[in-house]
């Protein structure tokens, strides 16, 4: 089973250190880990550091991988104007690093990713004609089609309507449970984090504030000190924790 552990990890752009001294417990396949924190906390930078796109001190230890490309990353949506269909766009992500000949297995994986995200109906649409939310799902399919052991998604629900948010997070839960993927997901919605993730890391100003089981991490104190809001966590009738925001500090 895949594992990921960060030890005193820092990341820098040029000489500017953006993220520093991040140490986490060992995360395992089957877990969903929420990456939380306000804007500009360093979440995307940490993803890029784990992926090896940025330099820095410390160790990113990944073990137990089975895939050719063990880590797949879905960055935040920046729009796309390429004259490609959704099907081609997902195939493109699958084919990176491979030769130009497309095998039936590659097409099957594309269709699997599209099916899992329930966007097969978009297959023939041009990527440039999609809404932001649809593009975000295609972007998730592009990460999924790489069959990674570790899937990292940077704010994947930011442009989705509520129905699609819940559905996408449900898909991630199934991927973790059934395919034993380790999923790291940056979220702003702490309610979603409480409901769908097993562990959470909270970043602020490039430093790790706290890390542990999500229910233990998201507390009224965290809401007040990091998010500058007041709120409480209560158990709903089914015993699941529920976040109630009362107001800004």
């Amino acid at each position: 089973m895949v594992t990921l552990q960060l030890t005193r990890v820092s990341a820098r752009y040029g000489r500017q250190v953006i993220v520093q001294d991040i140490t986490t417990p060992r995360f395992e396949g089957g877990q969903i880990v929420a990456l939380l924190g306000p804007n500009a906390a360093g979440k995307s930078t940490l993803f890029r550091r784990i992926l090896g796109l940025l330099k820095g001190d410390g160790e990113v230890a990944i073990a137990g991988t089975r895939s050719e490309r063990p880590v797949a990353y879905m960055p935040q949506d920046t729009g796309a104007t390429a004259v490609l269909t959704v099907y081609e766009s997902v195939l493109l992500a699958r084919m990176q690093g491979r030769n130009l000949r497309v095998q039936n297995d590659d097409l099957a994986q594309v269709e699997r990713a599209l099916t899992e995200l329930n966007i097969t109906a978009l297959s023939d649409r041009d990527i440039g004609d999609l809404s932001g939310g649809q593009r975000q799902l295609v972007s998730a399919a592009q990460a999924l089609v790489q069959e990674p052991d570790i899937l990292m998604l940077d704010e994947p629900t930011s442009a989705l309507d509520l129905n699609r948010q819940v559905n996408l997070l449900g898909v991630l839960r199934r991927l973790a449970d059934e395919r034993h993927m380790l999923i790291l997901v940056a979220l702003h919605d702490l309610g979603h984090a409480l409901r769908y993730t097993d562990a959470a890391m909270v970043l602020e100003n490039g430093r790790l504030i706290t890390c542990g089981p999500t229910e233990e991490v998201i507390t009224p104190a965290l809401l007040r000190e990091v998010y500058r809001v007041t709120g409480r966590i209560e158990s709903c009738s089914r015993g699941q924790p529920q976040l109630i925001i009362e107001g800004a500090v």
Partner: peptide, 11 residues
């Protein structure tokens, strides 16, 4: 995996 034949046919 559920095949999406219409997607592949179009491709």
């Amino acid at each position: 995996a559920e095949h999406a034949p219409e997607g592949r046919v179009f491709y």
